[in-house]
Design a protein around this nucleic acid. Sequence first.
DNA 1: AGCCGATCTGAGCGGAACTTGAGGATCACG
DNA 2: CGTGATCCTCAAGTTCCGCTCAGATCGGCT
Lengths: 252, 252
Amino acid sequence: MRLLLVEDDERVAAALVAVLGRHGFQVRHARSGHEALDALVPDGNDPYRVVLLDLGLPDRDGFEVCSRIRAGSGVPVIMVTARADIRSRIHGLNLGADDYVTKPYDMGELLARIHAVARRGAAPAAVAAPAPDAVPQQRGPLESRGIRIDRERRRVSVDGRDVPLTRKEFDLLALLAQSPGVVYRREQIFSEVWRSGWEGNGRTLEVHIGSLRNKLALPGLVEAVRGVGYRLIPESPAPAADQAPSSAPAEH
Amino acid sequence: MRLLLVEDDERVAAALVAVLGRHGFQVRHARSGHEALDALVPDGNDPYRVVLLDLGLPDRDGFEVCSRIRAGSGVPVIMVTARADIRSRIHGLNLGADDYVTKPYDMGELLARIHAVARRGAAPAAVAAPAPDAVPQQRGPLESRGIRIDRERRRVSVDGRDVPLTRKEFDLLALLAQSPGVVYRREQIFSEVWRSGWEGNGRTLEVHIGSLRNKLALPGLVEAVRGVGYRLIPESPAPAADQAPSSAPAEH
DNA sequence: AGCCGATCTGAGCGGAACTTGAGGATCACG
DNA sequence: CGTGATCCTCAAGTTCCGCTCAGATCGGCT
């Protein structure tokens, strides 16, 4: 049973490889998100049955890797991380992770959870390849369409011009910008930006979206998806082109 | 989306039913393991997509219920319990539970985990599969006959051309595309696409099917099965047998 | 306390999405 | 070939949902 381990700490990785190997897994070790995505491109070998994704150090990066994996493949993903806060858990699971395990974990439990998701396994026919180079992998501050989002300083600039945002506005933008193009459902947004379990009663979300749009002054950036939620429109509008024969230049 | 809640504490159950209901689940509440097992016997209704199994008081009983469930069905099970010790966790997971959540839990996280296992859906688990039309929910983008359905972006493209769909149209297509060739009964479609047990009075379904066909512009793709429902015609063969998820896209 | 910005709520508007109804087309079956 | 049931299309309603504005409440700061 093949397993993909994404872990940048060599020592942790070595230990895991040893243990997993002893339990019958054939482990491939990827040291970065990029390497992981490469490894997942179908190559005729057996597909991986599980991905163990450590979001250890490169902070936010791991979430994005998960989202990229999920954008192209149905392989089960278990996030392993030291980030134990509820927000991160919910976020990780909402991004498509199948399980979320926090360090320190019990090895036996981790194995049991690996087996649990592997048992479920994705339908073997993985459909499309993950989008490898379609969008360059972003590290550090997010940047797209001239918007720069600095998560640590909680600052946002558009074309170099600094845009002051309130807490909610920033959290909202940061969430949506995590995966441009992906639709975030209302409940999902509430559970990640507001205290979890809270459902907005009034027009709260719309109002904040409204003021965010005003401040950014980029018409069409934040799109409402009727009856579902919101999304950011990515600059490269076509994430759909896998085989690229005659990609009609039909940008609406 | 139907969910089976197994919980003997009425107050806890009532609270959960309320919250889950608000999040779009149609909850059936079983007060005992026995009742739960009864409820899981296939009866022609939609199968449950998730079982929330509280092993609260009847001590060991819950584990047995889980194992019985697993013996007869592939439905995903989440154990919810106050027993936080590692042994119980591992035991529960090894019995076939898909997740194991300990009290006190965060409601948002529980919801995220429910969605995670539901999303993963009933897999071709090795067990004696009861319902042939159990819905295999496949992940990642669906692709077949040049149609690409990206669920998280809610985008559909036909031969690279982007096709904007409304909510109902998209949900309808996504449902049918889960198992091309399989016939979905009207009631089943209504309960999946229209939440809550509501049977369309007028020609609602036909109209939506109609506009979906128009937008996709692929004649013969969506086929009506007289007196029963609708299905998608897979590109190549075998409408008959069990699930044969999307095969490799053959060139036309 | 008093101020001020941030957040929340409610009402009204407009437009998209959904539903309904009627008539025509098509199919299964005798 | 006739008949009834079922499905499709078209063209109205009707509801739902997101947007905006304005006012209320909350909370931090001087």
